[in-house]
Amino acid sequence: MEDIGELAAQLREFAAERDWEQFHTPKNLAMALAGEVGELVAEFQWLTPEQSRTVATDPEASPRIRGELADVFLYLTRLADLLDVDLLQAADDKLQENSKRYTPETYRGSSRKAPPLA
Rank of each mutant, 00 (worst) to 15 (best):
T103F: 01
P104K: 07
Y75R: 05
L74T: 10
D84T: 10
E6T: 12
R12Y: 11
Q51P: 09
G109L: 06
M1L: 10
D93N: 08
D71E: 05
A9I: 15
V85N: 06
E105K: 09
G67N: 09
Q51D: 07
G5L: 10
F14Q: 11
P63T: 03
A70M: 06
Y102D: 02
G109D: 05
Q45W: 12
Y107P: 09
Q10V: 09
H24K: 08
T25N: 06
E43T: 04
E13T: 14
E21K: 15
P59M: 00
Y75L: 15
A9N: 14
D71A: 11
D3S: 14
L79C: 00
P49C: 07
L117A: 13
E60V: 10
L69R: 03
R66W: 10
I4L: 12
A90V: 00
D3T: 12
E50H: 05
Q89V: 07
P116R: 00
L117T: 06
Q89A: 09
L33M: 12
E13Q: 12
A30R: 02
L95G: 06
E39M: 11
W20S: 08
K113R: 14
D19C: 03
F73L: 06
L88P: 05
P104D: 02
D93V: 03
P104A: 02
D86K: 02
L29K: 04
D81E: 14
T77Q: 00
R64H: 04
R112I: 13
K100M: 11
A91C: 02
L95A: 11
P116G: 04
A91I: 03
Q45R: 15
E97Q: 10
T103L: 09
E60M: 08
R53G: 14
A61F: 00
E36Q: 05
R64Q: 02
R53F: 13
A9H: 15
D93H: 03
T25P: 09
G38C: 05
L95T: 07
E2A: 15
T57C: 12
G109P: 02
A61K: 12
P63S: 08
E50D: 12
P116W: 05
I4K: 04
I4V: 07
L79S: 00
S62M: 04
F44K: 05
A61Q: 08
L88W: 02
T54N: 08
T48C: 06
T77R: 03
K94W: 05
D3E: 01
E2N: 14
Y75G: 02
A15P: 02
R112F: 08
A34K: 06
G38I: 00
K94N: 09
A8L: 09
S110E: 13
R101N: 07
Y102G: 00
D86T: 02
K113V: 13
D93I: 04
M1R: 15
W20L: 15
T77P: 08
T77M: 03
Q96R: 15
G67T: 06
P59N: 06
A16E: 10
W20C: 14
R112W: 15
L83F: 01
Y107A: 03
E13K: 11
D58W: 04
R101T: 10
E68M: 02
R18M: 01
G35E: 12
I4P: 05
K100H: 15
D93M: 05
K100L: 14
Q96L: 14
E60Q: 11
N98W: 09
T106H: 12
D3N: 13
G38P: 00
D84I: 07
G5C: 09
